[in-house]
Amino acid sequence: MDRLIEDTAERIFADHVDKAALDAAESGEFPNALWQVVRDSGLHLVGSPQSGSELADLYGVLRVAGRHAVPLPLAEVLIANSLLDEAGFTTIAVDGVAPWARIADRVLTVDGELSRRFDAEPGSNLAGESRDRVVLFDTERVDLPTDLRERMALCRVALMSGCLERILAMAIDYATEREQFGRPISRFQAVQHNLAVLAGEAAAARCAYDAAVASVDSPGFVHHVAAAKARVGEAAGIAAEIAHQVHGAMGFTHEHSLHHFTRRLWAWRDEYARESLWQEMLGLRIATGGADSVWDFVVDAG
């Protein structure tokens, strides 16, 4: 991805997203100030046709956003802006639920309905991120790419990959600072081995993400996304468990910020289909090809 875009995103999110902002958003307050900064920087248009950037950049911004648990519906805004003319704040609904529909100008459904007139009943996911139930009126049909669900799933993969990097960093920092039995707990082999496993899952997630992004616009895209969502969803569960174990009771408190990341991992692995559904899809495709084509599939996912 474009290094400049990534650095811009990193700087903005690092400067503007802190625990207070996350708590406020979770209590139902839309982060207007942060949204304004994002709009002023043009980040909300990354990946859109007029921006001169690519879809890989869009997913890259989301990876950075995942690292900071950015409390905006960036995946929905970016994908909507990559498909439609930008007209205010467009969120995307799947199965009747859309992030921040309560303040959105438009709702686009993954099935290709667009509406400016809708009811939104506030709701939230496991992470306390807005997931509002919507009822649309006056919808118009729009032509959408057939792989929109996969694009949205890849957004969740990107967010989870960034988030996994963050909890790895947090767990390493905590283990290095926290002393028990007269030494930092990072000196204990049992803790080191858990952190090695966590690092492995974060690295695997990164590579699964990279493979999927590299396949954008190729015939294998759908299958690479299926593999990535399945694998990264598994990584999220394993990694969040270890991050909490390392942080001890401290990480179980609301006061500590770890849960803003781990709860997002638990929520995102379910959104746009949990692992089992992607596994079934992938497995069915492989079985249809037959035993003697398994290797072919692994090699090019065509």
Partner: peptide, 10 residues
């Protein structure tokens, strides 16, 4: 069965 194949492939 499909899910197992898919999981291992992922």
């Amino acid at each position: 069965e499909a899910a197992l194949i898919g999981r291992l492939a992922s």
